[in-house]
Amino acid sequence: MADKLCWLGHAFFEIETSAGQNILIDPFWEDNPAAGSRPDHGDIILITHDHFDHCDNLAEFLAADGIIVGQPEVLNKIRAGSGESLQEENFVLAGSGMNIGGTVNVKDVDITMVQAFHSSDAGSPAGYIIQTPEGKTFYHAGDTGIFGGMDVLGDIYDIDIAMLPIGSVFTMDPKQAAHAVKLLQPETAVPMHYGTFEVLVQSADEFCRLVARKMQDVEVMAIEPGETIEC
């Protein structure tokens, strides 16, 4: 069996591992105009930063024994706003959180938090390297502009699938995101954070064209919200 990746619109993804873990990244459902199919639950939920379009509806997606992964300040904010619905044991490392550069093993999935360049009300923005029991490596960049350290991530990790924002205004535009692919050198690039709102880039066409020109050996999969690919 293979791992599966489903884009749920905006920066919201679900990874279903062949070992049975369900990983959700940046849940944004109720007010997401580009929402795809609704996921059932998340055994692990990763939060890149605390903007509403990356952590809305979090509690309703969390499995009963689920774990939320994020920075200490972000987790404190989420817990404070959850009332009694979320407890210390629902957060990574008994509520302590993790930070950039660190790796934790959650339910047999290795999760490394890496830097991102954006803004956040609490803590600082981040991305994630996710290594599943199947041996696949996923990179979710979070909301970010391009940065030189992406080539270091590409050197350290053998990235199978990179999920990269291309929508401009708040993140990389297609030109920067295509160059990010060149730095990261993944096997497959999946564009995200576009088409959700009118102000964002509406199509992945330019990104696909630029990647094809810069990195012909990288496959771009511009999937639709709700579409699933095998990895």
Rank of each mutant, 00 (worst) to 15 (best):
Met1Asn: 06
Met1His: 10
Met1Glu: 05
Ala2Cys: 07
Trp7Thr: 14
Trp7Leu: 10
His10Gln: 08
Ile15Glu: 04
Ile15Thr: 10
Glu16Pro: 03
Thr17Ala: 09
Gln21Arg: 09
Trp29Gly: 12
Glu30Tyr: 12
Pro33Gln: 04
Pro33Gly: 11
Ala35Met: 12
Gly36Lys: 10
Gly36Ala: 07
Arg38Pro: 05
Asp40Tyr: 06
Ile44Asn: 06
Leu46Ser: 06
Ile47Glu: 05
Ile47Leu: 07
His49Phe: 09
Asp50Phe: 04
His54Asp: 09
Asp56Arg: 08
Asp56Val: 00
Asn57Ser: 07
Asn57Tyr: 02
Leu58His: 04
Glu60His: 12
Gly66Val: 08
Ile67Ser: 09
Gly70Val: 05
Gly70Lys: 00
Gln71Leu: 03
Pro72Ser: 03
Pro72Ala: 01
Leu75Gly: 02
Gly81Lys: 00
Glu84Arg: 02
Glu89His: 10
Asn90Gly: 09
Val92Met: 03
Val92Ile: 14
Leu93Met: 10
Leu93Asp: 12
Ala94His: 07
Ala94Ser: 12
Asn99Arg: 12
Asn99Gln: 08
Ile100Leu: 08
Gly101Trp: 04
Gly102Ile: 05
Val104Pro: 03
Val106Phe: 10
Asp108Leu: 01
Val109Glu: 08
Asp110Met: 11
Met113Gly: 11
Val114Arg: 00
Gln115Asp: 15
Ala116Asp: 08
Ser119Ala: 12
Asp121Cys: 14
Ser124Thr: 15
Pro125His: 15
Ala126Arg: 13
Ala126Lys: 11
Tyr128Glu: 02
Tyr128Gln: 04
Gln131Met: 10
Pro133Asp: 13
Gly135Pro: 03
Gly135Leu: 05
His140Met: 09
His140Val: 10
Gly142Trp: 00
Thr144Asp: 09
Gly145Thr: 11
Ile146Glu: 12
Gly148Val: 04
Met150Leu: 12
Ile156Val: 13
Ile156Arg: 01
Ile156Asn: 02
Tyr157Met: 01
Asp158Thr: 04
Asp158Phe: 01
Ile159Trp: 03
Ile159Phe: 01
Ile161Ser: 01
Met163Gln: 08
Met163Ala: 14
Leu164Met: 12
Pro165Phe: 10
Gly167Ala: 06
Val169Glu: 07
Met172Val: 13
Asp173Trp: 00
Asp173Glu: 03
Pro174Trp: 02
Lys175Met: 09
Gln176Asn: 14
Ala178Ile: 06
Ala178Tyr: 00
Ala180Val: 06
Leu184Asn: 00
Leu184Ser: 00
Pro186Tyr: 00
Thr188Lys: 01
Ala189Tyr: 02
Pro191Gly: 00
Met192Trp: 07
Met192Val: 13
Thr196Phe: 08
Thr196Pro: 11
Phe197Met: 11
Glu198Arg: 08
Val199Trp: 03
Val199Gln: 11
Val201Lys: 08
Ala204Ser: 15
Asp205Ala: 15
Asp205Glu: 15
Glu206Asp: 13
Cys208Thr: 15
Leu210Gln: 11
Leu210Ala: 02
Val211Asp: 03
Asp217Ser: 15
Asp217Ile: 08
Glu219Cys: 04
Glu219Lys: 02
Met221Gln: 14
Ala222Thr: 07
Ile223Gly: 13
Glu224Ile: 13
Ile229Glu: 01
Glu230Lys: 01
